[in-house]
Computed example of a mutant assay.
Amino acid sequence: MSHRTLARLCVLPAATAAIALSLVAPASAHVGATVSDASAGAYTIATFSVPHGCEASPTTKIEIQIPESVLSVTPTRNPYYDLEATIEQLDEPLTDGHGNEVTERTSSIVYTADTPLPDGQRDTFELSFQVPDAAGETLAFPTIQTCEKGSTDWTQVAAEGQDADELESPAPSFEILPASGEGGHGDEAEESAEQTSEESTDAGSGSAPATEDAAAAPAEDDSSAALGWVGLGAGLLGLLAGGIALARTRSTP
């Protein structure tokens, strides 16, 4: 079999696979969200991605609905959109993570495009907020995508026991993870305080290790100074020897 014939036989399966992928890709290109930290109680940044329009129609507006367990969000500005936050009054005051009384919450964030987002281009929108202290629960942000022609409601939330992949227009969401309890500023401060306390105790008690370290320090300094003088002397001798050799070379006829 010639190389040309073999190449022709390989083209057909490759083309078929490419067509199959092009048909499958749009079905999985949902409006989704990724977060910088999904841990309960953490401050995170959620990035909402809009990968395409509505049936090839350019996108003109994105409305992100905020779940009730999130009291406040800070949206990131986008130079191509006008931004508007909807605030609603709470039925009963709540206490936030800082102990402050809260009487209202952000219910939605709306980005309206100055110029429509073409179907073949994507854009992202960011919201900063504190993750609710509810490890194991799924936090969903129903999102409505409005286009020049039609709209798509990414608002479906999987019921208990239902596979989210079965949803046609799932809402952007993520699962809240257990609080890590590591790497926080409070832990670092506590660790530093404990270390300082231990060092102060050792130095004040006159223990042997502290005394030995104090006594060893001058000895180490003396040794370093002696080695430095030895090195300097060796360098000077080398320069002297080099000078003598150079003088002999020049005096030789």
Rank of each mutant, 00 (worst) to 15 (best):
E126W: 01
D165N: 15
A38M: 05
T76R: 15
E63V: 15
L71G: 04
T86H: 06
L117E: 01
T115A: 12
S36A: 08
T124H: 11
L90F: 02
F48E: 06
T47A: 07
K149C: 03
L94Q: 04
A158K: 00
A46G: 09
V73S: 15
R4Y: 04
P116F: 05
S57D: 05
S36P: 04
L23F: 11
Q65Y: 12
E191T: 13
I109C: 05
S169N: 09
C147F: 01
F141C: 07
S107Y: 01
E166H: 10
S207P: 01
E182Y: 05
C147N: 03
P79I: 09
H98C: 06
G184L: 03
S224V: 09
P75D: 03
A33I: 08
D114S: 06
G206D: 10
E160H: 11
Q156Y: 10
G99P: 07
D221C: 06
T59A: 11
T138E: 01
S2W: 04
R4V: 00
G53A: 08
G186W: 03
F141L: 03
A203S: 10
P13Y: 06
Q121S: 04
V50G: 09
A189W: 14
E84S: 13
A140D: 02
V73G: 13
A164C: 09
E104K: 00
E194W: 09
E182C: 04
R122D: 13
D37L: 08
D163K: 11
D213K: 08
C54L: 08
P116L: 04
E55F: 12
G228V: 03
F48I: 03
A189K: 12
A17P: 03
A113I: 01
D96S: 03
E92P: 02
A164W: 12
T155E: 06
E84V: 00
A159V: 10
V157A: 04
Y111R: 00
A241D: 02
S151F: 02
G206N: 00
V11D: 11
T124A: 13
P253T: 12
D163F: 00
H3V: 10
E84L: 12
Q156C: 08
T146S: 13
I62E: 01
Y43V: 15
A179E: 03
S72K: 14
L23S: 12
A214P: 04
Q145F: 06
A215K: 15
P67R: 01
L23G: 08
C147R: 07
V157P: 14
S151Q: 11
A179H: 07
G231S: 11
E88A: 13
Q89E: 14
S39C: 06
E84Q: 15
T74R: 12
T143I: 11
P116Q: 05
S22T: 07
L237I: 14
D163S: 09
Q162M: 14
Q156N: 08
R105M: 05
A158Q: 00
E194T: 12
A189M: 14
S224T: 12
G41V: 03
